[in-house]
Computed example of a mutant assay.
Amino acid sequence: MSHPPSMFFDTHCHLDFPQFDARRDAVLESCARAGIGRILIPGVTAKGWARLIQLCRQRGKAVDLKAALGLHPMFMEQHRETDLEQLRQLLEKRTPEVVAVGEIGLDYLLPPASWPEQQQLLRRQLKLAATASLPVVLHVRKAHDQVLKILRELNFTRGGVVHAFSGSEQQALRYRERGFLLGVGGAISWPRATRLRGLMSQLPLEALVLETDAPDMKPSFAEGQWNSPVHLPGIAGCLAELKNVSVEQIAEQTLRNMLSLLYADE
């Protein structure tokens, strides 16, 4: 199947992770050939931000790489108070590579003792994003109602992407009311994911964006040890089957959705 050039946008790929160090150039060349023209790389710890921005600068030719900067809830033990000040400064004088705040959120699969600290960190990063008028990339596990409550309390209206969304239809609608898009990844490729596949078949395409979460969340059709952004067209194919539309329609609309989110102020 042929795809229009540079039409796919992988809205969540950890291309800066060490799993890609030995093969990053080859992966990006393969992405370009597959029509994956854009990749958003979310940051997870402060120590990785400078390298992430540099990666986006160095490799923004065949594939346009953009960065989100954030403090991920699964790395709480690595975060320091000074990280938030560093994030504030980077957002204040941000370069064109930085287009969002993330990956931020709540992970309630972690021990309950960490939840209050996670909530405080999320609130502070949402406030920084609001000040910078940037969308956010949300990581949410077992905590959609709590995240929605915080978004409502802070009146956060800039929107963002709920990465790897697997909540309910009601939660999806509440995120949409706040300007959020819902990330669709390799999880929909697994036949046993009947609830998620049913939900994605029902949600409007205008609410969705594509992602791989590479090197994690390997789809059912992927070979090898790690996931890759090269698999994005395959994920689009799975969504196209669920929604009974063409892959081109999936690519075009999800690209339009993400660009409208990122550049809403322009």
Rank of each mutant, 00 (worst) to 15 (best):
P5C: 00
S6H: 07
T11A: 13
H12V: 01
F17S: 02
F20A: 03
D25R: 11
D25C: 06
E29N: 11
C31G: 07
R38P: 09
I41M: 15
G48N: 09
R51V: 05
C56R: 09
Q58H: 11
R59F: 05
K61W: 04
A67N: 11
H72E: 03
P73S: 09
M74Y: 10
M76T: 10
T82E: 12
Q86M: 10
R88P: 00
R88N: 02
K93Y: 09
R94I: 10
P96H: 10
V98I: 15
L106H: 09
D107Q: 06
P111F: 01
P112R: 02
A113N: 04
L122M: 04
L126H: 14
A130S: 15
S133F: 05
V137A: 15
V137F: 13
H139W: 04
H139T: 05
V147F: 02
I150F: 00
I150S: 00
A164W: 07
A164H: 10
S166C: 08
G167M: 11
Q170G: 00
R174G: 00
R176M: 06
G179S: 10
F180P: 04
F180L: 00
L181Y: 02
L182C: 11
G198T: 13
L199K: 10
M200L: 15
Q202C: 12
L205N: 10
E211Y: 08
T212V: 03
D213I: 01
D213M: 03
A214C: 05
K218C: 01
K218W: 02
F221R: 00
W226H: 14
H231P: 03
L232D: 08
G234P: 03
G234S: 13
G234D: 09
I235H: 12
A236V: 03
C238F: 14
L239Q: 08
A240C: 07
L242E: 08
K243F: 10
V245R: 09
S246L: 08
Q249L: 14
L262V: 12
A264K: 13
